[in-house]
Simulated scan of single mutants.
Amino acid sequence: MSTVPAYKRILLKLSGEALMGSLDYGISSDVMMQLAHEIQTVSQAGVEVAVVVGGGNIFRGEGLAKGGIDRVTGDQMGMLATVMNALAIQDAIERIGLNARVMSAIRINQVCEDFIRRRAVRHLEKGRIVVFAAGTGNPFFTTDSAAALRATEIEADLVLKATKVDGIYTADPKKDPEAMRFSELSYDEVLSRRLAVMDQTAILLCRDHRIPLRVYNMTSPGELLKIVQGATDVGTLVH
């Protein structure tokens, strides 16, 4: 495995739930600092890092809609939750000495920047960590779709889906001890097998724009650096 990065620019997709750690709600400071240090090692290796974060640890629009709230309103609340998470990530990253910028798909200028593609690319070229918030800015679209969209817009070399398991399995490994992990899959296989990796829109975007996706365990220290250095035995590669 080479110490020279295998990728110039990556996009890391984090779910809101991943930020909770062992908590039932909110943001774990331990998880946040571990994430910041993982990003730091990758950035110092010469890789440009963008992040898309969900908001499920605070609000999830679809869940709110099931409780009777208008779906569009619920999704807008979910977008605001992602801004809160993005600000927390920015704070953790800056506390360890890196520069970070939050860019939102909805206008919230007193808190963070608007998403402007060319400006985002410029931030990345200057070595800043860019955290994309508010999904696509539209209701009915998940933050998985936002991750695939932003990766396409900034011409990322790789999308990384951070989870609590070490890849994609034939079934939920926590429920089925006989579940087997895939080392590699095609996008069409993910679609035909209906594997719950990312939503269908996100998978199609990555497939059509030929952006590889690797699913890995974010709770294992050092995995992110191994991936960007070219390790092929970490998680599951979808391409």
Rank of each mutant, 00 (worst) to 15 (best):
T219P: 09
R9M: 12
A133Q: 04
F132A: 05
I96G: 00
T232C: 10
D91E: 12
M103S: 09
A88S: 12
K66C: 02
G67N: 12
P221K: 06
E17G: 02
A81M: 04
D114S: 14
D75W: 06
R122E: 15
G78L: 08
F132K: 07
S2M: 08
E94R: 09
D24K: 07
S220N: 12
D166V: 06
Y216Q: 01
T152L: 14
E17N: 01
V52Q: 02
S183P: 09
T232Y: 03
K226A: 14
G235K: 01
V111G: 05
V165H: 00
T201D: 13
R214N: 12
A171C: 11
M20E: 08
A81E: 04
K175V: 15
S22Q: 14
D75A: 12
M20F: 02
G55R: 06
Y25D: 14
D24G: 15
K13D: 03
V51S: 05
A65Q: 08
S145Y: 05
Q90H: 05
K174V: 15
I154G: 12
S29Q: 13
R117H: 13
G67P: 09
V197P: 06
I10F: 08
G127W: 06
I227N: 03
R181I: 11
K226W: 08
G127L: 08
Q34P: 09
I168E: 02
V47K: 02
L185N: 11
D208F: 01
G78I: 03
S186M: 09
T136M: 11
L87Q: 07
I129D: 13
L185S: 08
I96K: 00
R194G: 14
A86P: 00
L204Q: 15
M32N: 01
R119L: 11
G137C: 11
A50F: 04
A146M: 11
I227V: 14
L225V: 10
F115T: 14
I211H: 02
G222Q: 01
A179E: 12
L185Q: 09
N85A: 01
Y216I: 12
A147R: 06
D199V: 07
E62G: 13
L160T: 09
Y187W: 09
I116D: 02
G46K: 00
M218A: 15
T82N: 01
E94W: 04
L204I: 10
A65I: 04
E48C: 04
A162K: 00
R150V: 13
R9V: 05
H123T: 05
A196I: 08
G127C: 07
V228N: 01
I168P: 04
V130C: 06
T142S: 15
I58L: 15
G67F: 07
F115A: 15
L64T: 02
R214W: 09
G63I: 11
A18F: 15
L160I: 15
G16H: 00
I10E: 02
I227Q: 02
M180N: 05
A105R: 12
M20S: 13
E125I: 13
A147K: 04
N217A: 04
T236E: 00
E189R: 08
T3Y: 03
V234W: 05
C206F: 10
N109Y: 12
A81R: 00
D70A: 12
L160Y: 07
G46R: 01
V165M: 01
